[in-house]
Design a binder for these strands. Structure first.
Lengths: 358, 358
DNA sequence: CTAAAAAATGTTAAGGCTAACAGTTGTGTG
DNA sequence: CACACAACTGTTAGCCTTAACATTTTTTAG
């Protein structure tokens, strides 16, 4: 007893033979579809257990024309957002018996996405979750090209006429920028990620809009690639450019790590000299030095919602457009009013501690 | 033109009809198997293009008894290691036409893993990559239960008689501990992750062995859960316990972030008062304050190797046991000799900068 | 006790593809 | 020109399930 595998895995036919019934009856028992006499059911169950029968989902998918799997096409899964998303999606899918085929979109660009989706479609996925940055036009094109598969997009401009589960990137950016302006900052620079990322474009836009509403504009802009190292380099470049700024908007928390570091190296205090605000609220952010003010995004929940939206589509419901998921401003110690004078007392106390300690 | 989808996707039969040949010939053209006359091939290709035929991988898998997909069972994919691994595995798989079904093992324990693998096997995956912490015995049990599917394990004790792709966790731990002892630290504490994680057990073991070789032992131990917050709490607990320590071994870089923070809050300088060394070398580590000494692990490469190992198994080769992948010590500024006196000059200079700046 | 309805079971034909073998056509050789 | 052999193409029988309908019980109502 115990070993779960015979030489060849058992099929419905094997079970049927052993139980002395037809395949169909076995199928009915296994899938709990249609009426089966209690005695028969018992006999079949017995046989199923004995042969250790497990259904072949490939054959099932072929016959049912429903594979009960969905495809998730995403850009670099090693990044914060995609990995968190995956976590939420997988969980939601697993809970209702769906499997997740993950495929990474290797480059930016429509062609790359199309190629990835094509492979997933060949696998007969029932639906597609697409976390690749797509312009309105590109999303429409994909919608057209893959019209036979329900799709939910995760990174398209708001208002794109497709099914989508989106974070309100613009709103988050506005929250961050308003936080700085409300504190009194007027000289604000930013580090944004590549603008071919749709979400990132919304953020930059949001920042700029807030500033121009106040009659301000960004005094400096640098582009990073999401990585801490790029945040560091961008900050160095910003400082080297000679423009003075007291507020720094950063496209994600990882780049903010690099920014904090660059400022620290120059002897610039955060928030005394420069207030820094990030985006994402990663697990590290609350524990950085100083704790990072940021905008919280709940990716696992977004993933879960995206899946449920897709599921509704698969079940033939026409779900209503999902409202943008709202991010949340998290104020920590990396931001403060710009005119705050250096806090002599604290500074001296810290030094004292350092010198006298041990 | 351009729309890729008819009402019902075309099948081999449709293409055959249009091209005026048999299904088998179309199959031969599409899969490039067996000889086909140039003229015929052209006619078939034409028909394929016209009908926009794409093969149905479900049916193909059923007929070939090979799904060309593999299952990846992993614990929390939102963590650093699993997400990096996934990235490497997916890439390697995609390059040779395999798809990846990702399934998260929701809890620790054999039952949970078995359940996850069962689902993947039902999907007829050709092989299994298993990144769940498994004891020698549990791994053997799984090997037995899933004897009909090739498996490669990613988190089992070295020497377990199964196919495995492993990092030399013990070696990495030894590197870290030796680094501290060599610097002259004698009072060393640690923060480790849950010991039901096999890899983590090797690390703790490695640390302890190095110390006992030197006639030392850990002066403090705390358990975290990989998160920065847990690293913070563990450090606070360590400090509260009253034991003095000048070296701190941390199970991963994320917890080290929390540790750095806790030390900083207490006015303890790193490395002046406490040297801290992490594990993983995440993208942030080089840019923390101070830059974190750590042990580098290349997960994407490990993932890639694991896949290739599995692939070899699938292709009927009996690949030789893979040597443990070696981690690498990365020395940065968070570690130094314990007897280094506070550097008054630097401290004063920093204060001066702070006060006079702007 | 019988007819009709309900329940239980079986049969047949797909679903889309490939393996294995069976033909057919064409080429080169003695 | 017949023969062997290669190149090409077709036929048949699965792979494992389910849908749809057909048939055989059983139950229920009259």
């Amino acid at each position: 007893m115990g070993s779960e595998s015979a030489d060849k895995p058992a099929t419905l036919a094997d079970v049927a033979r052993l139980a002395g019934v037809s395949q169909q009856t076995v199928s009915r028992v296994v899938n709990n579809t249609g009426p089966v006499a209690t005695r028969t059911r018992a006999r079949v169950s017995e046989a199923v257990g004995q042969l250790n029968y497990v259904p072949n989902r490939l054959a099932q998918g072929l016959a049912r024309r429903r594979s009960h799997s969905i495809g998730f096409a995403t850009n670099d899964i090693a990044l914060h957002a995609p990995s968190q998303l995956t976590s939420g999606i997988e969980r939601a899918a697993r809970e209702v018996g769906y499997s997740l085929i993950v495929s990474i979109v290797p480059d930016y660009g429509l062609g790359s996405v199309t190629q990835t989706l094509r492979v997933l479609r060949e696998r007969q996925v029932d639906g597609l979750l697409i976390n690749a940055s797509l312009s309105r036009a590109d999303a429409a094109e994909i919608r057209r090209r893959f019209a036979d598969v329900p799709c939910v997009f995760l990174d398209v401009p708001p208002g794109t006429p497709v099914h989508a589960a989106l974070l309100d990137q613009r709103r988050g950016a506005v929250l961050a920028a308003e936080h700085l302006t409300r504190l009194g900052h007027t000289r604000i620079a930013c580090i944004h990620a590549p603008q071919d990322a749709v979400a990132e474009h919304s953020r930059l836009q949001g920042w700029q809009d807030v500033l121009s509403n106040q009659g301000l504009s960004l005094v400096g802009q640098q582009e990073g690639d999401w990585s801490p190292a790029s945040g560091y380099r961008a900050t160095v470049a910003l400082l080297a450019s000679g423009v003075a700024f007291s507020g720094l908007l950063v496209g994600n928390d990882q780049m903010a790590v690099g920014a904090l570091r660059a400022l620290w190296e120059r002897g610039l205090r955060v928030p005394g000299d420069v207030s820094v605000i990030g985006y994402d609220d990663t697990a590290e952010s609350a524990l950085l030095i100083p704790p990072l003010s940021t905008v919280r995004q709940d990716f696992p929940t977004l993933g879960r919602r995206a899946f449920h939206h897709l599921k509704a589509l698969l079940d033939g419901q026409e779900p209503q457009t999902m409202p943008l998921t709202q991010p949340e401003l998290v104020v920590r110690a990396s931001t403060a009013a710009p005119d705050e004078r250096p806090d002599w007392r604290t500074a001296l106390k810290v030094l004292e501690t350092h010198l006298t300690n041990r």
